[in-house]
Design a protein around this nucleic acid. Structure first.
Length: 481
RNA sequence: GGCCCGGUCGUCUAGUGGACCAGGACGCCGGCCUUUCAAGCCGGAGAUCACGGGUUCGAAUCCCGUCCGGGCUACCA
């Protein structure tokens, strides 16, 4: 049961700098982000990294990046770069990590095997863990039997009380004591687990490699991590890690379990089911890192004011982990789009042109630059520019116009003759024409727009015309007659 | 099933016993502006605060129960 008022009340602001356990002297704030290199950055990981970064900044602490590659084939070395790229794209930096070094290295779990083996040996020596000779098959059978009997599964402790003889393959199993374990979570308040519901868990595999909960606990301790921010799905891993820390005689970090980000189906974002899980997708679609940072911060956190627009620098000033939400947050494309449009409009013309360039490989940089004024307030995503400017590199089919509309186009052609090919002169010429003829803007511009772009929607007609080479514009106007 | 965590407009949220017949933002609807689309401005609809009991002069806020949702449940991370 959570005790929000106590646990959270004291937590706001500087109070967090206090060590988790009384007695020890104030230590440096050290937070860590511990992704496993799976080839992509999960949106939830990105948000966790953001919160880590902001917290470290706010507390003058250190942000550590630790790569959890203690796994099977799933982790490939070159996947590491995806993590760096994704996080750098967001504008995040870390003080320690595999790529930048640091005093607590190495920062890849695969390079820390000796540490885990050493820790496992000391657990064994202290009697906090024991060797388990059970085979995978025997364990599966135990589990299956429990399931069939409708009982929750817990390891039988056969190897603690009556180990089989004559076997040499063993895992190291942690002996869970009786009682309960509790901690004050920075976002959920006090969380309590009855240890009776937790079976003895394996800490080292038969091949002497560590399991997740073990390597995490050992690393958090050895790296002197003061605060652990992670997804809510790790709540149930926390008791095991706390137990290991205690058995090893290490102080425990302070934990904050962030609410899960869910998709439209209310389920946790997963790569299989939700394309929006992949951080790189946003870069590909033309979302600005400024917008992503802002949106991610708002997913599960708020400043307690009515401000919703925040730059990274502003967030560094106001972020407070105690104001993180407890309930899960649903990902919402529309709000992201709104924020992205806001940041796009915020950019200088040159900056927008530079960011747009990669999305418009068909166009010369100069054309992109000239297109910016017409695009800026119309884009939700940078990639949207493609649809708006497509007429520049494709040749739209000539539309079938009514007689009256053809007359308008014919008149436009004549009115544009000899006019300097810039937006303003074009606009002036067209306006002079329609005033002379008594036509509404719509009456004249619509057929012209269709003749030139093949569509009914475009930026203002003078911009649309001016972006096209004069001869090409005339050709498209002439051919509908 | 077991353990754990949640539940305020469609969505993100404000709210920690009275200023809340619940505020903001996105989206939606309408209007203005207007050269179509946007952008901008103005206005509107939208929440029996999951439900039921308490406690209290007074509850979205405290307590109990119920329901619903989610997470975890590996010699994965």
């Amino acid at each position: 049961m959570a005790v929000p008022s106590e646990a959270r009340g004291a937590g706001g602001g500087k109070g967090l700098a206090r060590p988790a356990r009384g007695g020890s002297p104030p230590t440096q704030i050290r937070v860590r982000m511990a992704p496993s290199p799976t080839g992509f950055v999960h949106l939830g990981s990105a948000r966790t990294a953001l919160f880590d970064y902001l917290f470290a900044r706010r507390q003058a602490g250190v942000f550590v990046l630790r790569v959890e590659d203690t796994d099977e084939a799933r982790n490939q070395p070159h996947f590491e770069t995806a993590i760096y790229e994704g996080l750098h794209w967001l504008g995040l930096r870390w003080e320690e990590g595999p790529d930048v070094g640091g005093a607590y290295g190495p920062y890849r779990q695969s390079e820390r095997m000796d540490l885990y083996r050493e820790a496992a040996a000391s657990l064994l020596k202290a009697g906090a863990a024991y060797r388990c000779y059970c085979t995978k098959e025997e364990l599966d059978a135990e589990r299956e039997a429990a399931r069939a009997a409708g009982r929750p599964y817990k390891y039988s402790r056969r190897c603690l009380t009556n180990p089989p003889v004559g076997r040499d393959q063993f895992t190291v199993r942690f002996q869970v004591p009786a009682g309960e374990v509790r901690w004050d979570d920075l976002v959920r308040g006090e969380v309590v687990f009855d240890l009776d519901t937790i079976g003895d868990f394996i800490v080292m595999r038969a091949d002497a490699t560590p399991l997740y909960n073990f390597s995490v606990a050992v690393d958090d301790a050895r790296m002197e991590i003061s605060h652990v921010f992670r997804g809510e799905e790790h709540i149930s891993n926390t008791p095991a890690q706390l137990l290991i820390l205690e058995a090893l005689g290490h102080p425990r970090p302070t934990y904050a379990h962030l609410p899960v980000i869910v998709g439209q189906d209310r389920q946790k974002l997963s790569k299989r089911k939700h394309p929006e899980t992949r951080l790189a997708l946003y870069q590909e679609l033309g979302y600005l890192p400024e917008a992503m940072v802002n949106y991610l911060a708002l997913l599960g956190w708020n400043a307690g004011t009515e401000q919703e627009i925040f730059t990274l620098a502003e967030l560094e000033e106001v972020f407070d982990i105690a104001r993180v939400q407890r309930s899960s947050a649903m990902f919402d494309w529309q709000k992201l789009d709104w924020l992205n449009g806001h940041y796009i409009r915020q950019l200088s013309a040159e900056e927008l042109a530079a960011r747009l360039a990669p999305f418009l490989p068909e166009l010369q940089p100069d054309v992109v630059r000239r297109a910016v004024p017409a695009l800026q307030e119309r884009l939700r995503r940078l990639a949207d520019a493609r649809e708006l400017l497509e007429y520049l590199w494709t040749d739209p089919a000539a539309p079938d116009l009514e007689v009256a509309d053809r007359d308008k186009v014919r008149a436009a052609l004549a009115g544009l003759d000899g006019v300097a090919w810039e937006p303003e002169p074009i606009q002036a010429a067209l306006d002079a024409l329609r005033e002379r003829e008594g036509w509404s803007r719509n009456a004249l511009f619509k057929p012209v727009r269709r003749a030139v772009t093949g569509r009914d929607i475009s930026p203002p007609i003078h911009d649309t015309l001016a972006l096209l080479p004069r001869e090409e514009a005339f050709r498209r106007l002439s051919r509908v007659l």
